[in-house]
């Protein structure tokens, strides 16, 4: 990392800090204040989109840790998101548990299911591991779809809005703050995991598992830990999204959805936390932009709106391929280049 002019690291603490300069602190504070103000000037529809995007980011942070950092390719991420969503919805609507307890519990539940799937990673590597996460996707969704008495099958079930004291967070505006704060915490947690000892062990396993073991890293323990953390993030993201929507159905958690999660981190950049934000926001903007374009088009060509889903599949698939081919390090890398340029502007070189 390059520092701006006239800034020098004098202690290791300074060198390790994420937010280093005063300008960065100001920008961070400004971003948070701006985030808190979002509900004041956006409509309900837009706010719903933002809430969904934020909860996807939380879940995508999970797959970034598991796949991007620890190198354990997961093609079943949306099933873990589903475990979180259904656990939380069940706990609140059936057991009458408070939302504030249900969401973390849902995260732990998804993490434990992930741990179970992760057990296969002890013996399987690479392509063979895809099978176990794929199996998880199919088996988990099979259970959810066919256990009708509990989950409501393909009709889905309701996920009530949270309450705190006597206040019900029923409005989109109030719910926004819950997800926003959750996102801040999730990002903070993820960033700290990946930049300290645990994260280094994950990357070591990703880059060279044999050497990692010889250097004293307990492969099994850390792979399982990565599965637990990755799936716990998925579960919390899923639970938050579920309560935002109020109703959950199995068709939001298909294999295609799992591929989308992989796509987010490819587009954003594998192995970076900022990349997750870039990836999800980019795709979400693309999706909503396309939706608006098609709906305006449907005044001329009726039925253009029904093209949204398939067209988005084509575009998304194409974007993934283009990124892999031309910018395998994702948007996060572009951002780095931009920052490096801007830091020295107007005196580059």
């Amino acid at each position: 990392m390059h520092l701006p002019c006239r800034t020098f690291n004098e202690t290791y603490e300074q060198d390790m800090a994420i937010v280093r300069t005063r300008l960065q602190w100001i920008l961070l504070a400004a971003a948070i204040v701006f985030g808190l103000c979002i509900p004041l000037f956006t409509g309900t529809y837009m706010l719903t989109v933002i809430i969904t995007t934020m909860s996807i980011i939380i879940a995508a942070l999970g797959i970034q840790i598991l796949t991007g950092y620890c190198g354990q390719l997961s093609v079943g991420h949306s099933a873990f998101v589903a475990v979180g969503a259904y656990s939380s919805a069940l706990l609140v609507s059936q057991s009458g548990l408070s939302f504030w307890i249900a969401v973390p519990v849902a995260g732990i539940a998804a993490g434990l299911v992930g741990l179970l799937v992760g057990l296969t990673s002890i013996r399987l590597k690479g392509f063979y591991l895809i099978i176990s996460t794929l199996a998880a996707q199919f088996i988990i969704m099979y259970v959810i779809i066919h256990w009708t008495s509990v989950t409501g099958g393909s009709f889905g079930m309701s996920a009530p809005a949270p309450k705190l004291g006597g206040i019900e967070f029923a409005t989109t505006q109030s719910y926004f703050y819950i997800v926003f704060i959750a996102l801040l915490i999730a990002t903070y947690v993820a960033k700290n995991i990946v930049r300290t000892n645990v994260g280094r062990a994950f990357i070591a396993i990703r880059d060279n598992d044999l050497a990692a073991e010889v250097m004293g890293i307990h492969l099994t323990a850390y792979k399982l830990l990565a599965f637990f953390i990755g799936c716990a993030f998925a579960g919390i993201g899923g639970a938050l999204a579920a309560h935002a929507r109020g109703v959950i159905t199995p068709d939001s958690y298909t294999l295609v959805q799992s591929f989308w999660y992989l796509g987010y981190i490819i587009i954003g950049g594998l192995g970076t936390i900022t990349g997750v934000f870039f990836g999800v926001i980019f795709v979400s903007a693309l999706n909503n932009g396309l939706a608006m374009f098609l709906s305006s088009l449907s005044t001329i060509f009726p039925g253009a709106g029904s093209l949204l889903a398939p067209l988005m599949l084509v575009i998304f698939g194409l974007v993934i391929i283009l990124f892999l081919t031309f910018e395998p390090r994702g948007l996060a890398h572009r951002w780095q280049i931009f920052k490096a340029y801007y830091r020295l502007w107007p005196f580059s070189y």
Binding site: N192, I193, T196, N197, V198, G199, R200, A201, I203, A204, R206, D207, N208, A211, A212, M215, G216, I217, L225, I229, G271
Partner: peptide
């Protein structure tokens, strides 16, 4: 570990000396 910096490669070698664990992280 090709994706880590030189300094982090060495720190990965210090893995054993760090006992903070996940919560610590």
């Amino acid at each position: 570990f090709t994706g880590l910096s030189v300094q982090d490669n060495l720190l990965a070698g210090r893995h054993f000396y760090m006992t903070g664990g996940l919560v610590g992280s």
